[in-house]
Design a protein around this nucleic acid. Structure first.
Lengths: 127, 127
DNA sequence: ACCCTTAGTTACCATAAAGTGCTTACTTCA
DNA sequence: TGAAGTAAGCACTTTATGGTAACTAAGGGT
């Protein structure tokens, strides 16, 4: 859990301590987080090891941490099968799907801005 | 092989920092960043000292850093008047206004989720 | 008897980021 | 004379975070 009591950045809510927007942004910001969501959304439910394998150099510790936070925010679901060895499957939850739309919105902006910047850099280099 | 905006949350690159969406999210993650944008959006152009005063306990160093990054991303503009003492004014730029809409989208989700959680907590407490 | 598997946990370390305080430049006002 | 005021810059300290590696559970295979 992150401690937001020291640095409250709340834009919209005047109740000190937690702004909803900030809570969500903080959740998404760490490295790997959006990548987890993207994988679960495009490939469907995945097990811990499958996620880890697709993410290359991520450590178990950090991946666990990201999954726990996403699960606590109800963006993904965690299904534990107490077999030996155990099998744990993660999948997008309803809120994750809702978030996808707005993330796509940001992504479209980001991609467009980047291409605009590249185009401008090229035209300047041509002078 | 061009349209990545349809389903992808992270288009081409898997490494954190290369993906456009990740770049934007990392810029916003703050602390304080969304608060700066919110202030400039709701109160109009503000000078450095005015921003700092409204943000309470932020240090000049961090505020400067945030403003530089937002300026580099062309989300805000910086206007320097070489008077004595100097006067520097920050204002929303075109891209900042574009971003505002999607941020509002996230904020609406976040607020709704929070109220849903609170309602559920209350109904459980009533049992 | 030992090693393999999965999905983590724990301890420890290195680095990055945030916070604090001091300094600058120049003019006006007391 | 010198204090006040603005927008930082710089050096230093402290906290947060990510990464690495070792270790666990419990049974099945060899």
């Amino acid at each position: 859990m992150k401690d937001t009591s020291k640095t409250d950045t709340c834009p919209t809510s005047h109740t000190p301590g937690q702004c909803p927007l900030d809570t969500v942004l903080r959740l998404l910001m760490g490295p790997w987080t959006t990548y987890v969501l993207w994988l679960l959304q495009t490939e469907g439910p995945l097990r811990f090891g499958q996620l880890k394998a697709r993410m290359g150099r991520i450590s178990s510790k950090v991946l666990t941490d990201r999954l726990r936070h996403l699960e606590a925010a109800q963006l993904i679901t965690r299904t534990y099968a107490p077999t030996i060895p155990p099998a744990v499957t993660y999948a997008m939850a309803a809120r994750g799907a809702e978030l996808k739309d707005v993330l796509d919105g940001i992504n479209q902006l980001a991609v467009r801005w980047q291409s605009e910047d590249e185009a401008r850099a090229l035209s300047q280099a041509a002078e």
